[in-house]
Write a protein that binds this DNA or RNA. Structure first.
Lengths: 205, 205
DNA sequence: CTACCTTCTGAGAGTCACTATCACTTGATA
DNA sequence: TATCAAGTGATAGTGACTCTCAGAAGGTAG
């Protein structure tokens, strides 16, 4: 019986550190090999060897080969940013502001941006990874759904909210893919703004 | 050299008929087994045996096991319905009307509705199939994208159009999943209308 | 420092979706 | 009837992923 079951510790201890390092080693090795010879042409065994672990270990850290590419630790960040917005803002406004904040923060970390580019390149070129991304976006949808339900006072299963989050995520996904196909160099913040403009005013202007 | 390379024949001939029957046999057998024992617990060999063909033949007709569930012959139908709308209608209006038409036609065929229900039940419960559906929706997005680009006079690669189609398809997908999770019995036309209302007016009312 | 426990790792064997190849059958055609 | 093209089945792969179990290594109490 732990006295404070709510505090999950700041992840100190040799064990935790080793796990983080192993995870990183696998992912780095995988990215390198994927860039060198392509996703499909890279076997999991090779990733394991390059990362100096056994194949079993790779699957212990990542349930599928595709999951090595998709980290997915962003959801809670976005959710937090959304909760930080004043409660009287309409959903779309709050969402735009929240995503704006998250992206500004992301852009402050050059290596995070580099990784985003690598990842999007793979997403754009490998169907299996794209499919996986859509799945994970669906899960993000659930999270957003909950947060918006709270702030608008609607029920969790509300159809209209679900439609709204679906529309927003669908729009953003397309915008992100467009950005990727255009060479990953456009101003992503601008792409984001244009997405919300369409969501708010349609194709009008 | 065929005299008329544009006319692909009305699919007469024993060969064609046999192919269609084989395809149907495989799909029917698969649906039955999936309902009986679940998607993951059904091996492709078993589907082949139930359909009285060899496993190789199953893969000749469907590239993956998931594709047995997702027919995907609807895109051209929707596209045609969209092109049939007057050119001066704004995109969202035209899309709603086109989908309205397609769905009304679908509802006129009871067995098509039954199959839709079966399919959606699998989509909702099997992640791999859901992922595949998202992929195929992405392709539908391309089609819609092209059709809307034409009718608005914008370029094919236009970001705003892509955002719009992404939003519409994202909203509709969520609505369809909601419908499925609610038991497949609600009035789907109503769900469709509510989706477009949110797309046009936001969460306002 | 030692003993014990829990967690992590690696090795091995097995399952199953999917691919490639090739001989054989069968519908179309002259 | 002979010939050709297309569809089928058997066989032997490949590679992602699962399960199990023995041993190693971090954490902890005495």
């Amino acid at each position: 019986m732990t006295p404070m079951p709510t505090a999950p510790k700041p992840a100190t201890g040799l064990r935790e550190r080793k796990k983080i390092r192993t995870r990183q080693a696998i992912r780095r090795a995988a990215y390198r090999l994927f860039e060198e010879r392509g996703f499909d042409a890279t076997r999991v065994d090779e990733i394991a060897e390059a990362a100096e672990v056994s194949p079993s270990t790779v699957f212990r850290y990542f349930p599928t080969k595709e999951d090595i590419v998709l980290s997915d630790e962003e959801d809670p960040v976005i959710e937090a940013a959304l909760r930080a917005r004043p409660a009287d803002e309409p959903p779309l406004t709050a969402l735009r502001a929240a995503l704006h904040d998250v992206m500004a923060e992301l852009w402050r970390q050059p290596e995070a941006v580099t990784e985003l580019r690598q990842r999007m390149r793979l997403v754009a070129s490998v169907p299996a990874i794209r499919a996986r991304m859509h799945e994970s976006i669906g899960k993000s949808g659930d999270v957003l759904h909950g947060a918006i339900a709270e702030r608008t006072g609607r029920a969790r299963g509300d159809l209209e909210i679900r439609i709204l989050t679906g529309a927003v995520l669908g729009a953003l996904t397309e915008a992100l893919l467009h950005w990727t196909e255009e060479g990953l160099e456009d101003d992503l913040m601008d792409v984001l703004d244009r997405s919300f403009r369409v969501l708010e005013h349609g194709l009008a202007d």
